[in-house]
């Protein structure tokens, strides 16, 4: 939590100009000091199998703190599998087996002594399809703090408001906190899920194609939001949409068929001058 509350969210206009610049130039946004940031999640030679089938093949990656890291690649290349390894959401699948090393702040996530429930309290997640609980908006956002037993320690009302403000949803829902989260529109629901994920103040937020079920306007809002979130959180986002990766991420990882991490570099470099021909083919649409 080193940089928590470091900066306020940037203003709307600033964000917009940055995004439009990013779109025009294909360059990612420069965040924070120029020296290389700390690494939060490290994978070394990570293999994942579903039964006999190999989903990830020797992945090596270092995900930097307080940056947006995008993971792109064709369908079935193991993007989501990798994402769900980080907070051990694959544990629920009986046939799933993980080899190699995945470290979160230097601790092996798949170590015997690690409690996946405790781990997930440090790593929030947003899913492809908005999945608010059939509870009130307030209860949705307060859910994390409540199940983590922290509802008594913090001011719950303030925490809910802070999370909803960070998710740029407060102004739209502040008068209807008691109505069901399911009454919101799809885009609002997804921002509610983001608010829910950030309310317990995790260090990392994993996003599994958070905008793929949304219309362009809602997508733009969610993208703005991701940009703001990187001020405080480490964001890892899986996306199908290469323009989206180019717009919002600092670093981009390209997975290709077979679960290989082929290229991982600054977003601008990946999109303008990739090292591998296969990546260039994929990005320019010749393949995948």
């Amino acid at each position: 939590m080193a940089t928590n509350g470091k900066a306020d969210t940037s203003s709307e206009e600033e964000t917009e100009t940055i995004i439009s610049t990013a779109i025009e130039t294909g360059e990612s946004r420069d965040r924070g000091p120029t020296e290389s940031p700390r690494t939060v999640v490290t994978a070394r030679d990570l293999d994942v199998y579903y039964g006999q089938e190999r989903a990830l093949d020797g992945v090596d990656i270092e995900i930097p703190e307080n940056r947006v890291t995008a993971i792109i690649g064709p369908s079935g290349c193991g993007k989501s599998t990798f994402l769900r390894c980080i907070n051990r959401m694959n544990d629920g699948i009986d046939a799933c087996r993980v080899d190699g090393e995945l470290r979160f702040h230097g601790t092996d996530v798949y170590d015997q002594g690690i409690d996946p429930v405790a781990l997930r309290r440090k790593i929030g997640m947003v899913f492809q399809k908005p999945n608010p609980f059939p509870k009130s908006i307030y209860d949705n956002v307060a859910y994390g703090l409540r199940v983590q037993g922290r509802a008594g320690e913090v001011d719950l009302d303030a925490a809910v408001e802070r999370a909803l403000r960070s998710a740029a949803l407060w102004d739209e829902v502040k008068d209807q906190l008691d109505s069901s989260g399911l009454d919101l529109s799809g885009g609002q629901q997804q921002r509610l899920c983001i608010a829910r994920a950030i309310a317990p103040d995790p260090e990392v937020i994993l996003m599994d194609e958070p905008a793929s079920a949304l219309d362009p306007i809602a997508t733009a809002k969610v993208e703005d939001l991701i940009d703001d979130l990187a001020e405080e959180y480490t964001v890892v986002i899986v996306t199908h949409n290469m323009q989206q990766a180019a717009r919002i991420s600092d670093r981009t990882a390209v997975f290709l068929t077979g679960g290989e991490l082929v290229e991982f570099d600054d977003t601008a470099k990946v999109f303008e001058n990739p090292d591998h021909d296969r990546v260039e083919d994929y990005i320019t649409g010749k393949f995948g």
């Binding site: 429930v117 997930r120 309290r121 929030g124 899913f127 399809k129 859910y143 994390g144 199940v147 994920a197």
Partner: peptide, 27 residues
């Protein structure tokens, strides 16, 4: 009860019992 609700709850750091009690059973 849709599985994405369970996933959402687990991802919030809820235990299995908390997920069952707060999300699955009410639904």
């Amino acid at each position: 009860v849709p599985d994405h609700l369970r996933q959402g709850s687990y991802a919030m750091g809820a235990t299995r019992w908390q997920t069952t009690k707060n999300v699955v059973l009410p639904e």
